[in-house]
Simulated scan of single mutants.
Amino acid sequence: MVLLRGGMCPGLEEDLVRDLRAADVKTVEDLVSSDIEELAQRCSVSFKALFAIRRVLLAQHTAFPVSGADLYEELLSSTAILSTGNPSLDKLLDSGLYTGEITELSGGPGSGKSQVCFGASVHISFHLKQSVIYVDTTGGLTASRLLQMLQSETSNTEEQMEALQRIHVFHSFDVYSLLDCLYSLCSGGLQQASAGGGSAKAVIVDSVSAVISPLLGGKQNEGLSLMTQVAGVLKTLAKDFNAAVLVTNHVTRSSSGEVQPGLGASWSHVPRTRVLLERVEEAAAASCSSLRFATLIKSSRQPCLIKEELDLQWWSRSQVEHSGKRKLDETDP
């Protein structure tokens, strides 16, 4: 609350402030919420003068109301949805990765987390023409793998190289170098990495659990503190820099034996959306190892526990092959 005092605005002199206090009007809030006509009579001041004072104080000390429609328009203008390039995954994510949010992919070894990150980064770079920050904490990302995926998109060498230049790779093999990397992105690295002005719209950390989970044993104090720092700077990148942040996580088993994302309850509040990747056992038996089940386990937009079958090879085939496969599927008995 802001106390009334002489000189706050034209016409509000000490004598009037004294009269207002005598009428039990001591703050700006009291004045703007009072019946001005009645108050003017009690303080022996003209209605016109008191109304003018009230109008100035309203402009200086209160927020103007914003309609729900205005808020929605602001959301639309500030939020972008980046397609991952895989229609099954985009369907699960309600169209793709949202800027301003953290999305998590969790899964066991060989579940395809890194493959999804590779594919999404290639699609965002080549098709959406957006810069991608890729933080690799396991050493699993190679330029040859990215090039192979780009070669399935275009045979034009110049286009391949342009897309590769939009993918900026950082290697961070411990939590301290990860924090250094993320803080440097906040300090200007995100803008510098953008090829067409503005900031890079996609930040991928594969994997966040690889550098944090080894620190969560024993008393956990230091590990939890470092995990909180990582979470904080990732949220800053998402919110303040309007980036779509994608992280990967390992899995553990609950006391009942169910598979669940790792890093515990404290971390569970960090991602806005969480997807669990699992092998399709029938496909594995039939040597179709690229098929996975993707289950939505946390979302503010979609019903949880919906599941999609995901083909990891989607990003490694040309769009012509994708279309041909769809037509073949439609004609299969």
Rank of each mutant, 00 (worst) to 15 (best):
D70Y: 02
H171T: 07
S34V: 09
S184W: 01
V245W: 01
A59C: 02
E321A: 11
R326G: 00
L4A: 11
S33Y: 14
E153H: 01
T273C: 08
Q151E: 05
R317L: 07
S266Y: 14
S95P: 03
L296S: 01
S88G: 04
T103K: 07
V251E: 14
L128M: 11
S266N: 13
K327F: 13
I53Y: 02
E104K: 12
N156Q: 08
S225I: 00
G217K: 03
H127E: 11
T103R: 08
F64V: 15
I212C: 12
L234T: 02
L16H: 05
G197E: 12
E222Y: 03
G11E: 14
K113A: 05
G324P: 05
S207H: 09
V66C: 12
N221P: 00
A244T: 04
V205E: 11
T273H: 03
S67N: 03
G7F: 12
L39R: 10
L185H: 03
D19G: 07
V270M: 08
V169E: 12
S78E: 13
T157H: 08
F241C: 11
T142R: 10
E101I: 04
Q41C: 09
R18F: 15
R166Q: 06
G85L: 05
N242A: 12
A163Y: 02
F118W: 06
L89N: 07
E29R: 14
M1F: 07
L164P: 06
S34K: 13
A283N: 03
H322Q: 04
L291S: 02
L226N: 00
N242Y: 02
F173W: 10
S213G: 03
L310E: 00
A23R: 11
S256K: 15
V205W: 05
A52K: 11
S266Q: 10
T99G: 10
C43V: 11
G264M: 11
L237K: 03
A40S: 12
C181I: 03
Y183C: 14
L185N: 05
S254K: 09
E330S: 13
D136Y: 03
I133A: 01
P65N: 05
R274A: 04
G119N: 07
K219Y: 11
G232L: 14
G108S: 13
S177F: 00
